[in-house]
Design a protein around this nucleic acid. Structure first.
Lengths: 128, 128
DNA sequence: CCTTGACTTCGTGTTACTCGAATGCAGTAC
DNA sequence: GTACTGCATTCGAGTAACACGAAGTCAAGG
């Protein structure tokens, strides 16, 4: 069983964000101890990780909540959930391509700047 | 010379966003015609593309504005700009890795769902 | 001349946090 | 036994980056 703080370190989210997510119902069956402290078991932790992945694919809080609700409905919602996951897998793939383009662009820029800087140094007749 | 609408289509941003960016000073030397309409030449368009890349690397509007101001200062700011670009190149690389992890995760999920669904169908003795 | 359509500014609304204040409980320090 | 420390809680306000709609301008077409 982990506290909010421990989970925050584990999966690199802020404590605020984790409380925000649990309050929004994105982690089903989250437990509390007698002092009302949130306690995460392995299942809750895994849910939170799933939530993070979906969010990073661009799914809104509302839609994640909807997905969680589908899960809680049980097996009858499996096909719907599959279609959602499939859609977000494709989004993830597009994001991967975009990220690759960004890296390329930034590398080009770095190279560009290096050329300018090196040229300036060799042109520079006055020592530092 | 392109209008806001044309630029929006070209680089896949909304017109709102483009006006928002220009109003924040993220596109230096943006021109206007006599009716006060924003007009983008190639240089402005390229700036906007650069802004988009930096933003997608997670740079805030404020920091992009700062970067633009450095550019307007001229050659004296080249080293500073280089360092910023270098930093965001690394961020872009981390994002690429994260994106790859996301794709992997989503592919795993898709596979998982497919297994469940197929099993259900073969278990199902009643025809549709 | 009036409508259509593309542009403008301005001001409010939305999402997803983000922060801080006020409060509560538990364990140690004296 | 009470004061302090530390970690947790809730709640409400603040922020960033748009997103949207209203209200207005202009110029060209029917």
């Amino acid at each position: 069983m982990y506290t909010v703080k421990e989970v925050a370190q584990k999966i690199n989210l802020t404590e605020h964000t984790i409380r925000f997510y649990t309050d929004k119902g994105l982690v089903p069956n989250i437990q509390r101890d007698k002092y009302n402290t949130r306690l995460f078991d392995e299942a809750s932790l895994n849910w939170l990780i799933r939530v993070k992945y979906l969010k990073d694919c661009g799914m809104s809080i509302k839609d994640i909540k909807h997905f969680v609700d589908l899960y809680l409905e049980g097996d009858s919602s499996i096909l719907t959930r599959y279609e959602i996951i499939l859609k977000y897998k494709e989004i993830a793939q597009e994001q991967l391509e975009e990220a690759a383009r960004r890296v390329k662009f930034m590398e080009k820029k770095v190279k560009h700047y290096l050329e300018i800087i090196n040229q300036d140094i060799s042109d520079d007749t006055t020592p530092r």
